[in-house]
Design a protein around this nucleic acid. Structure first.
Lengths: 205, 205
DNA sequence: GGGTTTTTCATCCAAAAGGATGAATTTTAG
DNA sequence: CTAAAATTCATCCTTTTGGATGAAAAACCC
C-alpha cells in the first residue's frame, strides 16, 4: 500500500486508464481521474493528492496550464506535465508554471515511476524557496504561531526592523517587540538571524 | 550558437558520440566527452560545463556516483544520470547525490532536450537551498567578497552572532565586526537580516 | 455573555549590533 | 622584492534588539 496519491488529469479516457493501470502496477494510489478542469479542481480539493499529472495538448487546450496555476496558488504539491511531444515552444509556454518535470508520451511504467519519484524528491527541496505559509510552519513543527505572529515573522524573514514593521502595520514598536519576543520564545531562538534560520529549517524539513 | 555547455560522461564511445550528435542537433555545445572518471574531473575543471550527463551502469561501475559527489562538493552545476533501466533499487542508490533527473536509455533527441531544459530550469530554483558558494555570489552579482568576508557571511547566514563567529574562527570580536561592516557596505545593507535577504536574492537570481 | 486567547502598549534595563576611524600585520600578485 | 589588497585589532559612540513584567483593549469561542 503506497502512500503516494496521484491525481491524473487527462481528457482521453483510454490514456488516463492506461496511466492509472501503470501507476497501480508500481503501487501508487490513484485518487482520481479528471477529464475536465472542473473535475480536476474538485478532486484536488477533495482527495488531497501528493502529486498531479497534467495533460497538456498545446493548441486549443490550455486547461493543463490553468490547473497548474491553480495548484501553485492554492496547494502545496508538485505536478508533472504529460505531453505528446516536446519542443522549445512548449517549454517556453509552460515553464512559468514551474512543473517538476515532463513526461513525454509514449512512456512506459518505469518512465512514469522515475519521473514521479524524482519530482517528489526534488519538490521537497524546491518548496523551501516559496513563500512561507502559516500552515507549513504550524503543521511541519510543534510550534503554533498566531496570525499576527506569523505576519511579523514574515516581515522578519524579509529583513524588516521592528520600527519598519511597526510603521507598515500601523502599530507601535513596543507591540512589535512583544510579538517578536513571543515568536522567539515559540521558536526557541534569541535573535532575528536565528529565527530566519529556524524558519529555513522548517521549510526544508 | 547555444550557450549551454554540456559535459558527457559515458564510457561507451558509440553511445557518447550519439549523444553528442543529438545535442548538437538541438544546438547545445558539447564541451567534452569523458570516458573515465579522471577525464571527467579534468573536463569539469577546464571546460566549466553548464550541465553534466553522467552514465551510471550500476553494478561494478559506480564512477558516475563518485563524479556526482565530486560535482556536488566542488561545483555548482546540475547533472543528469543516463541509465539503461530504472528501478526502485537504482533510485535509492543514487538519490542521495541529488541528480536533477534521469534519462532512461534508449532516448531520442526530444527526451534529451526536455530533460536538460527542465534540469537547468529547476536547478536555478534548487540551488538556492544549497550551501552558498563564493563563486555564485561573486559571479551572480557585481559585488566582490574576499574569502574571509565570504566565510563570515556564511556564518551570518547560518545565524551566528559576532561573538560566536569570533570564537569559532579564533579572531577577536572587533575583527569580526570590521568584516561584517565591510560586508554590509558591499551588499549595501545595514544589518544581519537584510544581509541574509540580500544573499537569498542573489542565490535565487 | 463570560471566560480565554490574542493583540495592543508601556517602562526599565542589558546585550548586541551598527558606524566611523585609524592602524598594524600578513598575504598576494606582478 | 615591493606595492596593493586583505586581514587583523582597537576605541568611541549611537542605535537597535532582546528580555522581563504588567496591563488594558479587542477578538474569539462555546
Amino acid at each position: 500500500m503506497s502512500n503516494i496519491k496521484v491525481l491524473i488529469v487527462e481528457d482521453e479516457p483510454i490514456i488516463a486508464e492506461n496511466i492509472k493501470a501503470l501507476l497501480q502496477q508500481v503501487n501508487y494510489t490513484v485518487v482520481g481521474i479528471a477529464f475536465t478542469k472542473n473535475q480536476a479542481l474538485e478532486l484536488l480539493e477533495n482527495t488531497s493528492p501528493t502529486i498531479a499529472l497534467l495533460d497538456i495538448n498545446l493548441g486549443n487546450n490550455l486547461h493543463g496550464i490553468e490547473i497548474a496555476e491553480h495548484i501553485n496558488t492554492h496547494y502545496n504539491i508538485p505536478f508533472l506535465y504529460l505531453t505528446s511531444y516536446s519542443s522549445k515552444l512548449i517549454l517556453d509556454k509552460v515553464k512559468h508554471t514551474f512543473p517538476m518535470g515532463y513526461i513525454v508520451k509514449p512512456f512506459d511504467e518505469s518512465d512514469l515511476f522515475t519521473a514521479i519519484e524524482i519530482a517528489l524528491s526534488n519538490y521537497s527541496s524546491i518548496k523551501k524557496n516559496t513563500v512561507i505559509s502559516l500552515e507549513t510552519i504550524n503543521k511541519n513543527s510543534d510550534i503554533q504561531l498566531t496570525k499576527k505572529e506569523f505576519i511579523i515573522l514574515q516581515e522578519i524573514y524579509s529583513g524588516l526592523s521592528n520600527h519598519q514593521i511597526a510603521e507598515k502595520h500601523f502599530v507601535s514598536t513596543n507591540t512589535v517587540k512583544t510579538h517578536v519576543q513571543n515568536i522567539y520564545s515559540k521558536l526557541n531562538v534569541h535573535n532575528r538571524a536565528d529565527a530566519i534560520v529556524a524558519i529555513r529549517k522548517i521549510l526544508n524539513s
